[in-house]
Design a protein around this nucleic acid. Structure first.
Length: 154
DNA sequence: GCCAACGTTGGC
DNA sequence: GCCAACGTTGGC
């Protein structure tokens, strides 16, 4: 089982939307970045755990934990000319973009703010803090454990 | 809304 | 295959 962090803009789809989805499960799609795609396609598997991170909003930070349900599959949007994220270079034989389904495990009682993460020396090497713009990224087990301890603190 | 960082595209 | 131009992300 591996650990990941997925970013999302809560104004578009946040942890509350995931909580209200049928079976608290939703497709995590619309990822159009090759590095993120590679993780989705090659390394993210059923049972993996995911930190749900809220970006571009008033309360930036980690909002809760989800679980990957099933294996990744081609993001349907890329095949639909009516979709804003249609990709003419994709075909059923050679899809370019992938997605997974995730199920909510729990919402944090409060957001663990980005500001808090930045203040913790053990987290300076988190991909989140090192590489600003990656929307699907790995989390080290020790980072995961530390973040879980922050859930009820600060 | 600003703007820095950085990923992607396309000309050569 | 380089790299400038461009577009997007995302914190503040």
């Amino acid at each position: 089982m591996n650990y990941w962090l997925f970013k999302t803009e809560p104004d578009v789809f946040g942890i509350d939307d995931l909580a209200q989805a049928p079976e608290q499960t939703a497709r995590w799609d619309e990822i159009r970045n090759f590095q993120a795609r590679n993780y989705l396609r090659d390394e993210i598997h059923a049972g993996d755990r995911v930190l749900i991170y809220h970006s571009s909003c008033r309360q930036v930070g980690i909002a809760g934990i989800a679980e990957v349900v099933g294996e990744s599959y081609p993001d349907p949007g890329q095949f639909d000319p009516a979709n804003a994220l249609f990709d003419a270079r994709s075909s059923a034989d050679a899809p370019r973009w992938f997605c997974v389904d995730v199920r909510l495990r729990r919402r944090f009682a409060r957001i663990v703010p980005l500001k808090t993460l930045k203040q913790i020396p053990e987290l300076v090497d988190m991909v989140l803090l090192r590489q600003g713009r990656l929307s699907v990224q790995p989390v080290r087990p020790e980072e995961w454990r530390l973040i879980e301890t922050l859930e009820n603190g600060s």
